[in-house]
């Protein structure tokens, strides 16, 4: 008797332990993402040195005095540059997704709600945009507008536009066929009203979930552009460009190329998991 009670308690303990381990595991990506955001925000206080003007002996090793991760070819503290390098990554990836979400979402909303020939024409335009080599589009944007943080954001946003336009269109078309929309139209509300007040609120959530899951893609695309030397603005630190700069030093100071790449990967991983969780919740919510 006592035995089985003990077993039950033990089993319960294991279960709750599993549960809390599951919760902790689920919280981990959010925690990591939060750390990235905080570190970027607090970079001026966290960074031991000025990432741009700092001037020490160049090419110091890791763990040298005062420079935990050493210094680069120009004598700047690597740790400080990594911390400040988080900023453009976050600004570009979040900014680009927000831009693409707003523009692509609005486009898809119009297309899906309008239906008919308008819808067909608008979607063929998206098809054409998708057949346009994306890297070419990004290069053209950056070469035409010049290297700046906003222009990089714009270039990445262009590459994500079709994702949101297509999703928003599909969702809006689904909603537009529903009774409440038909009712609103029958009641004589304008198309604009139908779009903004009836359809939009109902497609916002899945779009936001999708947005979360493409932040990682945006960060990777931005890093690839920097790696190709496009849109970079030295001496401001940028993780993708740090990989490029560090690449030729692989045999001398491998950490200079490896660390920034690792940070990009960890960030992309964390936000991917976050997006995945949101998508799971959305799927279950949608099913119920």
């Amino acid at each position: 008797m006592a035995d089985s009670a003990g077993q039950k308690i033990a089993a319960g303990g294991v279960a709750s332990l599993r549960l809390s381990a599951g919760v902790a595991l689920a919280a981990l990506p959010w925690l990591v993402a939060a750390i990235f955001v905080l570190a970027a925000l607090l970079a001026p206080w966290l960074a031991p040195h000025d990432p741009v003007a700092g001037r020490a002996a160049p090419m110091q090793q890791m763990f040298s005095d005062g420079h935990l991760l050493g210094t680069d070819a120009l004598g700047r503290d690597t740790l400080s540059r990594l911390l400040f390098g988080l900023r453009p990554m976050l600004v570009v990836s979040l900014g680009a997704v927000a831009l693409a979400l707003a523009a692509g979402g609005a486009y898809g909303l119009v297309s899906g709600t309008a239906g008919g020939r308008t819808d067909w024409a608008m979607m063929r335009a998206v098809d054409i945009l998708m057949s346009f080599p994306l890297i070419l589009a990004a290069i053209l944007v950056l070469a035409a507008l010049g290297p700046s943080l906003f222009n990089v954001t714009l270039a990445v946003a262009v590459s994500q536009l079709p994702i949101f336009a297509r999703l928003a269109r599909a969702l809006a078309a689904g909603e537009a066929a529903r009774d409440y929309v038909l009712a609103a139209r029958a009641a004589g509300f304008s198309e604009l009203h139908v779009m903004l007040r009836e359809v939009a609120p109902n497609i916002a959530r899945p779009l936001l979930v999708q947005a979360t899951s493409v932040v990682a893609l945006a960060a990777l695309t931005a890093a690839a552009l920097s790696y190709l030397g496009l849109g970079v603005r030295p001496p401001a630190p940028d993780l993708g460009y740090m990989v490029k700069e560090g690449q030729e030093l692989l045999f001398i100071a491998p950490e200079q190329a490896l660390l920034p790449g690792l940070l990009i990967a960890v960030f992309a991983l964390a936000v991917s998991f976050c997006g995945d969780q949101l998508a799971d919740v959305e799927r279950r919510g949608g099913g119920a």
Partner: peptide, 15 residues
Amino acid sequence: AMTLFALPWFWFGIL
């Protein structure tokens, strides 16, 4: 799978 997806291609190539 998630990790593979999150790797920057150019960095992974160098590695």
